[in-house]
Design a protein around this nucleic acid. Structure first.
Lengths: 117, 117
DNA sequence: TTCCTGTATTCGAATGCGCGAATATTCTAA
DNA sequence: TTAGAATATTCGCGCATTCGAATACAGGAA
């Protein structure tokens, strides 16, 4: 069960890819954002996102299985919350990366337009 | 072409998911890490990762199309480099998130083991 | 030109993912 | 106990992704 350094590094990359895969869905990102405001019931999440309940439950199951969120029964409801606030940080960092990309593309588009004038 | 705030937010989530999707592959993560050290030729990358050249080119094409890396001809070689160092930051943040998760799971496993003694 | 090296692309098969629809499950209240 | 509300799960389809294999392409040297 002991791996050499090379294999260990590669195994880490594999796990990291699985983590990123969880973040690679718009609905799950929105759920993470909403849960960043505090614990919420499934119904609330479905309402806030405008998605069907079954779909929300499916995505919550993915987040749960990967340990990103934690579920707690409260009467008949299930209250979900983030297990680690750094999940939010990761989301925000990738978003700022994205925004910079979009800005750059916007500048590129503008410069192309001004060349053509 | 103008979207209301709700639709704009959702469009942003969609783009962010696409960005995360790019980071959701172990080979691509390794390439990003390697390029974090500085520009490298395809051959070097293939050698460093131990993967076939065609596979590396395929993944580089994905990174290129999403604007994460930039390619430059140098003689007969193509030198790839990161377009933004924050890509590395994003990788490092998700990795530290992962490591914390693994640590927590390790502690959990240990506590379960000690209970059984 | 021809050969060789380095790189890119295409194709097909296998696998994985997200979704809607339908159905199960779990808890509370009556 | 039954009814109903909240949530979870299963199934099957369509779609995207990954990979190896084969091939194409581009530039330098002879």
């Amino acid at each position: 069960m002991y791996l050499d350094e090379h294999e260990r590094r590669r195994e880490l990359y594999r796990l990291q890819a699985m983590l990123c895969q969880v973040l690679a869905d718009p609905t799950r990102i929105e759920l993470i954002e909403l849960l960043g405001e505090g614990p919420k019931a499934v119904k609330e999440l479905a309402q806030a996102t405008g998605q069907r309940q079954a779909k929300i439950s499916q995505h919550l199951a993915v987040l749960r299985q990967r340990g990103l969120v934690h579920a707690q029964r409260v009467g008949t409801e299930m209250h979900y919350s983030l297990t680690d606030s750094r999940i939010l940080e990761a989301c925000h960092l990738t978003r700022s990366l994205l925004l910079d990309q979009l800005l750059r593309q916007g500048e590129l588009a503008e410069s192309v337009l001004s060349e053509r004038r």
